[in-house]
């Protein structure tokens, strides 16, 4: 995967270091899966108060599979494009697969060099999905209390 920090030489050789490649801007301008689900099984609103980025993720899960996903939000191009790319990626995956996704997986998906200061923006979408799934799991635990 691409290194996420400023890896000096590589960037100096690449003065156009195009953080804002066309496909990123395209995802920002016309995000995929942007909207709401009527009856989400999992939803969560995540935010980076420092930047004012905000994302609400809604998942429709059945039989352990993410069958539907939608998000709304506002914020920088990186955070919103990341959410758009992530929703494409997780649709059809099992909850287990989604839970296993790492920040590096998402950064690979985004495919551009993210400076340390922007990591929070890039990773907000994944963080929000993880919270939504964790909420769902804890609610299910509550509904069917185990022996403990």
């Amino acid at each position: 995967m691409k290194s996420s920090a400023y890896s000096g030489a590589e960037r100096i050789l690449d003065p156009m270091d195009d953080l804002y490649r066309d496909y990123i801007l395209e995802h920002y301008r016309r995000p995929h899966n942007f909207g709401v689900l009527d009856t989400p099984t999992a939803s969560y609103e995540g935010s980076n108060p420092l930047c004012g980025d905000r994302i609400t993720m809604m998942l429709g899960v059945s039989d352990g599979v993410v069958r539907d996903v939608a998000f709304t939000g506002r914020g920088c191009a990186i955070s919103q494009a990341s959410a758009s790319l992530l929703t494409d990626e997780i649709k059809g995956k099992t909850v287990e697969e989604v839970e296993k996704m790492t920040p590096d997986d998402l950064l690979d998906l985004i495919g551009i060099d993210i400076s340390p200061a922007r990591l929070k923006c890039a990773l907000l979408s994944l963080d929000t999905v993880a919270h939504a799934l964790a909420d769902m799991a804890s609610k299910q635990d509550g509904a069917e209390p185990g022996p403990g």
Partner: peptide, 13 residues
């Protein structure tokens, strides 16, 4: 329609 973080990042170049 452009978030200030994106503005700052592009200016940084």
């Amino acid at each position: 329609g452009i978030h200030p973080h994106d503005v700052a990042q592009i200016l940084d170049r």
